[in-house]
Design a binder for these strands. Structure first.
Lengths: 165, 165
DNA sequence: AAAATTTATGTTATATTATAACATACTATT
DNA sequence: AATAGTATGTTATAATATAACATAAATTTT
């Protein structure tokens, strides 16, 4: 099982996470022979800085603030598409928002733990889930290609009562 | 395991399905002491008539055709909200579209098999999935309240090769 | 039955999310 | 430097969803 839940829910040196993610992204782009331009990198960084997924227009606002010249929606959506195609970013369909992927390149389950209170999103990958869903698909004669699993609830910081593990 | 996959993928007397669904809806509304008005019933029926999820504006068009007077978006969204709150209808987040629920009142997994070719959607409920996801949530100290699972792929009618089971 | 209350719908306007289409600029090669 | 390929700028608009307030219909109370 892979997850970034502890990092998301507990305070930690997040700057290191961000830097590591950016480095990994450069590596992945290098391998794929595509360019992580400054706009794309800036958007990836903004998504990594926030444990809450950001919408395209939030990204636009923040990016415009940083870059001093106004950035139009198509630029944002193009960067998002680039990053999601590479698996560096996920779209959370129910939120119309985007979040950095903590384990690009790894096997994915695309399981998202979405806190209904603070909106924080953690991600999990677990093979048993994939296996089970493949089995169910198979029984229905359905050939799955990809999946998104959204769990809505309360993260440990928002759950009343015992907060720690 | 519950599923409507066979009904969705194979030709059958769908009028009976629709009527049964409407009857069930009346029953559920009666029990909940809320009203299944003609608009709400019409929208539920439209959703049941289609094995593809319909968007709010598609519903609007079709309803306007039937009712002769133009129906505005808020009316549609209100009816959708009413029906989803009762569990009679599901929203498919990645499609911004809505589909009738084949087993309201039953335990749910909210697993949707979405055909990328013909857009048909079948639904599955399976306790093992819920159990597994609860276990994963628990490890992350996340308290899940609801979930949506979207599987994207090809239904048996769109999958090249062997079509039958 | 009339008045009051609740529930549902009508109506207008607008917010939010996303894309189409075409122009310009930048990058890497030849 | 010319070319081809890739990325971004720019303008307009499509598609999805909701806010706010007015009216109507159904239900309950008197």
């Amino acid at each position: 099982m892979l997850t970034n839940a502890r990092l998301v829910y507990q305070t930690h040196d997040h700057v290191r996470c961000i830097n590591a993610a950016i480095n990994r992204a450069h590596e992945i782009c290098g391998n794929a022979n595509v360019r992580l331009t400054s706009t794309r990198e800036a958007i990836l960084k903004l998504l990594w800085q926030s444990h809450q997924p950001l919408g395209a227009y939030q990204l636009q606002q923040q990016l415009t603030k940083v870059s001093d010249k106004p950035i139009a929606p198509p630029t944002i959506y193009r960067a998002i598409e680039f990053l999601t195609d590479l698996g560096l970013v996920h779209r959370i369909p129910s939120l119309n928002a985007y979040v950095g992927c903590p384990f690009p390149n790894s096997d994915h389950s695309n399981i998202f733990l979405i806190c209904e209170s603070c909106k924080t999103v953690a991600e999990i990958a677990d093979n048993r889930v994939n296996t089970l869903l493949e089995g169910l698909s198979d029984k229905a004669n359905f050939k799955p290609k990809s999946q998104t699993i959204e769990l809505f609830g309360l993260c440990p910081n928002c759950e009343p009562g015992d907060n720690d593990e």
